[in-house]
Design a protein around this nucleic acid. Structure first.
Lengths: 120, 120
DNA sequence: TGAATATATGAACAAGTATTCATATGTATA
DNA sequence: TATACATATGAATACTTGTTCATATATTCA
């Protein structure tokens, strides 16, 4: 039976069908789970976390963020694009300078809960 | 001045030094930010999100998770290792069967805040 | 208009990661 | 003890992603 595609799935024998059905009934829909993972992916990078923490304290221009984090303007700019696409930051222009700020009030709470887990 | 390493950092001219200092004063320490990013990295994968949501509803064995998510036992097992290392799940053994369950009560709140952001 | 400068962006590269495949480990049972 | 089976794991692979480099865009000011 080397060709049975279910070979690697516990011999295709579901041990607790009742539990599986119970769990299935409580699962959010696929799309929500995907979007949630995408959101956390955005949080899963030190540079972006730092940018967001910086913006908790004050709006900032790209140049200042680069100086603050000791990174190139390009690297910061690329990451800001990711944060923009995730609707986490917004910006306003003042001449050449672009000021970024937070566009979501959940972020801080999410981060705090995350820190709670870490500091346990 | 093509060799100036600060060339790409806004000519090394910090525009708003006051803001940078203000922000610096409020930044958590490097290590916390790193750990936080590591935690969110764990959340940043659909398979792991699904596993955790499943465990919100009930403890489950590896085999059932594989059946539920229609994935190989091996893939599930690898992801459970990541979740274990992040201290997000714990397990108990009953004969051959290993039952996994949540090891943190913050997860659900973090996910709910995440969904709030998505559904806005 | 031309020079300076703040930001954005495409391409390339290096590093990280999720899954698969093969196989090992550990437990129950015939 | 031998077999079955639930789980774990190392290696390989395909895919993703963060940064750099070069350059484009846009705005100010002389």
């Amino acid at each position: 039976m080397a060709n049975n595609p279910l070979m690697d799935r516990c011999e295709s024998t579901i041990i607790h069908e009742d539990i599986i059905n119970e769990v299935k009934a409580h699962m959010p829909k696929e799309e929500s789970l995907y979007d949630l993972a995408e959101l956390f992916k955005v949080f899963g990078d030190t540079t972006r976390i730092k940018i967001l923490y910086a913006l908790f304290a004050s709006e900032m221009c790209v140049c200042d963020m680069a100086a603050l984090l000791n990174m190139t303007q390009s690297a910061i700019s690329h990451q800001l694009r990711v944060l923009k696409q995730a609707r986490l930051v917004k910006f306003r222009k003042d001449g050449k300078v672009v000021y970024y700020s937070l566009d979501d009030h959940h972020i801080q709470q999410i981060f705090n809960q995350g820190l709670n887990h870490i500091n346990e």
